[in-house]
Structure formats: C-alpha cells, structure tokens
C-alpha cells in the first residue's frame, strides 16, 4: 500500500530539464561576470547552479567607472525603496535601454535570509517591481521588462552577518 510512483514524472522532468538546460537558460553567472569588480559582487559559485555554459548576450556596455558597469542595486533591510546611488544606476541603464529599443531586460529580485521564504519572495518581487516602474517611467516599454524574484533562494554571500545580508538584498539588472 501507499506506493509512490515517481518514475513517470521523474522521466518527464528529466527530459524537460535536459532539454532546456543548455539552450533556454541564460547563465546569470556569466552575465554577472561582466560586472564583477565594479559592483564589488562576486557572483561565482552559486549562480544558477545549472551546468549550462552560458554566453554573454547583448552588448556588453560599461567600464569600471561607468554606472552601466554596475548591474546590481542594493537595498536596506525589509525595504524596496531605492537609495540615491541605486536610482543613479537605474537611470543610467534606463537611458541605455531607451537608446537600444528591442532589448529585453530581466530584473531579478533577491532578499537576505532573515524573515520567511515566501515573504522574501514577495520582497524580492517588490524590489524588482520598483525598478521596473522606474524603467517604465523613463520610457522603457513594459513588454521589454520582466521581474523575477528568487527571494532568499539565491544568495551570493553565504555568511550570516550584516555584510553578507547587505550583499544579498539586491536586484540584478540582466540584459
């Protein structure tokens, strides 16, 4: 009694994952690598965790002192309010995207580990949405913007202290 038949679904999922592993998934780690140094974020190690060998897509704008080289926006605890610096960076990206119509942008929202997982999912979403609204206000078409929140599921810093938490409360601007 109570036999759990997992094979059919596992086979399906496996096929599904195998099918999309290398082509559909953009490797966030690769894309972030372009910005390492400037934003101070090392996105290595965790990333998407897939075995996908991603490629940088779109134009790779930005130099070290260019706000376009910074693609990670940081937030205060339990807040989705942009800092002045965050707003400055977002505006620079908005200007770039407005001059390059047709580019799609993903705003990936994250939270630190404190608080519950689902609340943090909502918090990451709110952080992404704030930037998405600003993008729209600055002339980016809403159809070009997608917000995805991973909550606290994809930390870049693994510690349990203020420094790690500050690194993890972020939105990554991916295009």
């Amino acid at each position: 009694m109570r036999k759990i038949l997992v094979w059919p679904v596992i086979a399906l999922i496996t096929l599904g994952l195998a099918g999309c592993a290398s082509d559909k998934k953009q490797s966030t780690a690769e894309i972030e690598d372009a910005s390492v140094g400037a934003g101070g974020v090392s996105a290595s190690g965790l990333g998407s965790g897939s075995d996908a060998s991603g490629q940088a897509i779109g134009s790779q704008a930005g130099t070290v002192d260019d706000p376009l080289s910074r693609r990670v926006i940081y937030f205060e605890y339990d807040s989705s309010v942009l800092t002045d610096e965050g707003r400055f960076i977002v505006e620079a990206h908005a200007a770039y995207l407005a001059n390059n119509p047709g580019m799609a942008v993903v705003l990936e929202g994250h939270a630190d580990e404190r608080g519950t997982r689902e609340y943090n999912l909502a918090l990451g979403e709110s952080r992404g949405a704030v930037i998405g609204e600003l993008f729209q206000g600055l002339g980016i078409d809403s159809s070009a913007i997608r917000v995805v929140s991973y909550g606290e599921e994809r930390s870049v810093a693994l510690g349990h202290d203020d420094n790690a938490w500050a690194m993890n409360r972020r939105v990554e601007i991916l295009y």
């Binding site: 759990i4 059919p8 679904v9």
Partner: peptide, 28 residues
Amino acid sequence: EDGRSKILVQNLHTGARKKLAEFPGING
C-alpha cells in the same frame, strides 16, 4: 524550473503533475 516561479500540484500515487499558476510575477 525554467527560471520562473510556478505553482504545481503533484499526485503522490501516480506522480502526475498539473500546473496551477504561472502568472507574470510571483506565484507562491
């Protein structure tokens, strides 16, 4: 899976899955 949040239900006897929600934004 596929980089978007979605809500699925899965039958524990058969393993069959059904997608309930995959709207823009969070599905949680």
